[in-house]
Design a protein around this nucleic acid. Structure first.
Lengths: 185, 185
DNA sequence: TTTGTACTTGTACCGACGTACTAGTTCGTG
DNA sequence: CACGAACTAGTACGTCGGTACAAGTACAAA
């Protein structure tokens, strides 16, 4: 057994595999026994460290959110580095899309949020973060529209073998970023 | 018991409640017993009419897709009626967003598609349909970008109490529809 | 060294579930 | 009427899963 007499490590290990399991096999795939098996801890440990399966699930989602937050922070830096140019954003995002685990994690948060209103703040974080970053280079509505488009692209990527190509991304981002509500009134 | 000695009706009733149950409570909420209870048929009927729970699930998803197809057909008419004007599309879509059951059904198809590749064709149908409709009024890439944006808006709506307002929709749709790849090269 | 607290571990209970199955019922056809 | 196919309906079996729990172990403090 790993992490014997290392409460922090055990808890961490269980959260890690729980997050992984949900990302890979869906929200409902998580069971105490599966976590115990993957984290190589006895079944009892899963109930000792987490009040209920729901607690374990929620805690694991929070781990995912924390990782996503970190991701967003890095993205912010890169975007600022390219001064919010559509080409730069498109390139950055194209790279992001190639990591299926990452976008599947995002999707998991969304699914959880749809059916559990109390988890919505977690799910809203990604779009909110992207919107804020882009707001430095576009009108608030334009930034939000771009973030929503990117979310649509994520979904599309999850459902197709080939992602949207970079030129198309660049075109859409450029179009959305350069508009504002006033313009079209 | 309803629908006694009416095989078609029973089958239909079970599919209907199964679809409803999954839309309302998520993909994993479906059980034989729940369907039997909701459709007011004995447990045995659920296994007599469907080889397995998976069969029942998939068949119910197909019912949802059929309804969505019908929906898309109507949307196509409306869009053609307003000659693809962004304002018209925005108004139409704003109305669509107000029906939570409908967009939650779409979301269910997506979730199913993410974790079951064989169901992806079902999930891709909506975006594909919208893209095709819009292609009559914009470049293919622009039409697809618009469809992806609208998908992002759906997701956003599911996660927030207030939907994106119509002016914002109009702005984004107008911006996306009026571009093409060549333009930005 | 004693003791108490935190942690470990295996087992057991109980409900829910998918599915199989049997006995019965209905109804069209010969 | 007889018969068989289609359908009905209730029950039962085996499994899995959440959770409770008891007995044990390690370790820090007194």
């Amino acid at each position: 057994m790993t992490f014997r007499r290392d409460p922090e490590g055990r808890r961490r290990a269980m959260l890690e595999v729980a997050a992984q399991e949900m990302i890979t096999n869906g929200y409902a795939a998580l069971t105490h026994r599966r976590v115990a098996e993957l984290a190589q801890v006895p079944l009892g440990a899963t109930t000792y460290y987490f009040e209920s399966l729901d607690d374990l699930r929620t805690s694991a989602l929070e781990v995912i959110v924390a990782q996503a937050d970190e991701e967003i922070r890095q993205v912010a830096e890169s975007i600022h580095a390219c001064q919010g140019s559509p080409a730069g954003i498109a390139a950055l995002f194209a790279a992001y899309l190639s990591d299926r685990a990452k976008i599947q994690a995002e999707n998991l948060l969304y699914y959880a949020g749809v059916y559990q209103p109390e988890l919505r703040p977690l799910a809203q974080r990604w779009v909110k973060g992207i919107t804020e970053i882009l707001s430095a280079y576009a009108a608030p509505e334009a930034a939000q529209a771009t973030a929503l488009y990117l979310d649509g692209v994520i979904l599309h990527t999850l459902l197709h073998d080939r992602p949207i190509d970079e030129p198309a991304l660049r075109m859409a981002i450029a179009a959305l970023m350069s508009t504002s509500l006033e313009e079209k009134r």
